[in-house]
């Protein structure tokens, strides 16, 4: 009796593993920012080809790369989306687990907007204003830092209104937050000359000073749900919100994006690279799975076709900001030839 039970227990997972080895469906993981784009491509791919519709999981950029780099084989995903570039440490991890060939495809840009309700005026911010309003410590003379004393926007910059600083934004686990810290906060931080000089001497201290967000209630972590932030902005006209461009695009009747360094967060400004707070989006393909799991090459071809990621492709309807033509061409041919990632 016990023997049969043991035998059964040994056979069942084997039988399942055998079934799993015949996977005929692409598995995609990764960033929640790229998720709506990847799913749109997956859906189109599933409806117009004879392949099954890929399964797309929303795990976050870091979580996706962790799964992606865990190994080669049908239990591991074929593609991972990321709202930032893969890190050196992640590439090393991939190599250690036998994932040697990785193809990098940049898909386009995403703007991060600082928006408020239409019931109040549009703000004209600079990156320096954003840094001085939201950093935990701000510079007070050469080499000195003081805890952020600013209570209202007027304290930060005399030309701004005297409303309380209240910014709703994503939590630290989010890729949007990382990008916001790097582009907006650090961008403002760098405008202090001696801080910029610090970067060369002590990179760690520089990053800590420039990326740390204040924790006294002025910056409110509103969870990963951007729709929620939009709703809260409507209820509280004095608050600002930080989120992706597509949510501004969909809710243009309720909210307006603040100008950053004199540039409005419009589709054109982000595409031209004039708007300073925008970041590239990527996906990574596991070379070892191409040809093993059917359809990967065709999926990549669909994603990189002009009818998807082009200037008038269906991804721009979803809020993706397309790359310039040359860059698109380069990434299309690189991905079609499965060229390895070079850091």
């Amino acid at each position: 009796m016990i023997k049969t039970v043991i035998r059964l227990a040994a056979i069942v997972p084997l039988a399942i593993a055998a079934e799993a080895s015949a996977r005929d469906q692409i598995r995609i993981v990764g960033s929640s920012t790229v998720f709506p784009f990847a799913t749109a491509v997956a859906e189109e791919f599933g409806k117009t080809t004879s392949f099954k519709t890929p399964v797309v999981e929303s795990t976050g950029s870091g979580g996706g790369l962790k799964l992606f780099c865990a190994g080669v084989g049908v239990n591991h995903p074929d593609v991972t989306n990321a709202s930032r570039r893969i890190k050196k440490s992640e590439v090393d991890r991939c190599h250690k687990n036998g994932v040697a060939g990785i193809v990098e495809v940049k898909v386009g840009y995403d703007g991060i907007v600082v928006a408020n309700s239409k019931k109040t005026g549009q703000l004209q911010l600079t990156r320096r204003d954003i840094f001085l309003a939201l950093a935990k410590n701000i510079p007070a003379g050469e080499g000195k830092w003081v805890p952020n004393p600013h209570k209202t926007w007027k304290d930060v910059n005399a030309s701004l209104p005297a409303t309380k600083i209240e910014v709703l934004g994503p939590p630290p686990t989010s890729g949007t937050r990382d990008a916001f810290a790097e582009l907006a906060l650090e961008g403002g931080c760098k405008t202090f000359k001696w801080v910029k000089a610090m970067k060369k001497k002590d990179k760690k201290a520089y990053k800590a000073a420039c990326h740390t967000v204040r924790e006294d209630g002025a910056y409110i972590e509103a969870g990963e749900n951007d729709n929620l932030i939009v709703q809260k902005l409507e209820a509280n006209p004095n608050a600002l919100g930080v989120f992706g461009f597509s949510f501004l695009d969909q809710n243009a009747d309720k909210i307006q994006g603040s100008l950053v360094d004199g540039k409005a967060p419009t589709f054109e400004n982000i595409a031209d690279g004039n708007y300073p707070v925008s970041r590239p989006l990527y996906f990574y393909v596991k070379k070892a799975h191409v040809g093993v799991v059917p359809g990967i090459k065709e999926y990549v071809a669909e994603f990189t076709s002009d009818k998807a990621w082009g200037d008038e492709g269906y991804l721009t309807d979803k809020g993706l900001i397309p790359m310039p033509m040359d860059e698109r061409k380069m990434f299309r041919s690189n991905s079609a030839n499965l060229e390895n990632l070079s850091m």
Partner: peptide, 20 residues
């Protein structure tokens, strides 16, 4: 369900216990 990959975009209607 998040940890085991069920927070996902699945377009096809599952037909069995092993389908996504």
């Amino acid at each position: 369900l998040l940890m085991i990959g069920m927070v996902a975009f699945v377009a096809d209607i599952p037909t069995g216990f092993f389908d996504p």
